[in-house]
């Protein structure tokens, strides 16, 4: 199958004063469509940097990042914005919802940027929030919701545009175990349902169980790529 994203010899070097820190050192990777990937590594292993590069949030120091025959690393800000708008969804560890907006408005935002009509986007956002189990929280502001609920809003926002790739950067870092499983079930379930590529960045081995492929990273290099038979609905039996 044709890969959705290809990384060819990608390097990323940060300059900290006079010191150079190599965050990524010659990464070669291919991500196939409709598969779930897990970037596993300790902090400082370069996994977040890699994700930022693929999402076009940062530029590589060397190498090429190709998304469906387009060089992401060569795009200017305008095209990157369009690229993210059309192809990418984001779930963050810290949810990153806009505090002044309600759940519904937060989920609507990506549609606003894509100039979807108000009626249509309201309907779709409400549907999406219902799908993540927040049917009765539409008018709530982030401050009025629990961490799990906020992350659900963030998931709804990431998926509402039906992007071809969804990034999840430590999506469960701030959540308890029970909620972690709920979130992971939700994210992976949605990715499967919409036949999307899901790239999860985590340091949590348990979460990697959801992935088709586990990419282990260490010191800016790929240590190992493991194939995995992904689990689907993992139930939390710790508390039961």
């Amino acid at each position: 199958m044709e890969p959705v994203i290809q990384l060819k010899d990608v390097r990323k070097v940060y300059r900290m004063g006079s010191e150079k820190i190599t965050a990524l050192n010659g990464i070669n990777l291919e991500f196939e469509a409709e598969k779930i990937y897990c970037l596993l590594g300790t902090s400082g292993s370069g996994k977040s940097t890699l994700l930022n590069l693929i999402a076009g949030l940062e530029k590589p120091s060397a190498g090429a990042i190709i998304f469906k025959n387009q060089r992401i690393d060569k795009m200017d800000e305008k095209r990157l914005a369009l690229f993210r708008q059309q192809n990418i969804g984001f779930v963050f560890q810290s949810y990153n919802l806009l505090p002044a907006l309600t759940a519904l408005e937060n989920v609507t935002l990506p549609l606003i940027f894509r100039q979807v009509r108000p009626k249509e986007r309201k309907r779709r956002a409400a549907e999406m929030l219902a799908a993540v189990g927040l049917k009765d929280r539409l008018k709530h502001k982030p401050s009025q919701m629990s961490g799990g609920q906020q992350q659900r809003v963030s998931i709804a926002r990431a998926f509402i545009n039906k992007p071809s790739i969804v990034f999840a950067d430590e999506p469960t870092g701030n959540l308890d175990t029970k909620t972690t499983y709920e979130m992971m079930n939700l994210i992976t379930g949605m990715a499967r349902e919409n036949r999307q590529t899901l790239i999860i960045v985590t340091h949590d081995l348990e979460i990697s169980a959801y992935a088709h492929k586990i990419i282990k990273m260490r010191d800016g290099c790929i240590e190992k790529i493991e194939d995995n038979n992904p689990i689907f609905n993992k139930e939390d039996n710790v508390n039961e």
Binding site: A55, L57, E77, K78, A81, L82, R84, Q85, Q86, I88, F90, N96, L97, L98, L109, P110, F113, R114, R157, A158, N161
Partner: peptide, 11 residues
């Protein structure tokens, strides 16, 4: 956040 979820710089 707005940029990441698709706002263009001109927006």
């Amino acid at each position: 956040i707005m940029k990441v979820i698709g706002a263009s710089i001109s927006d």
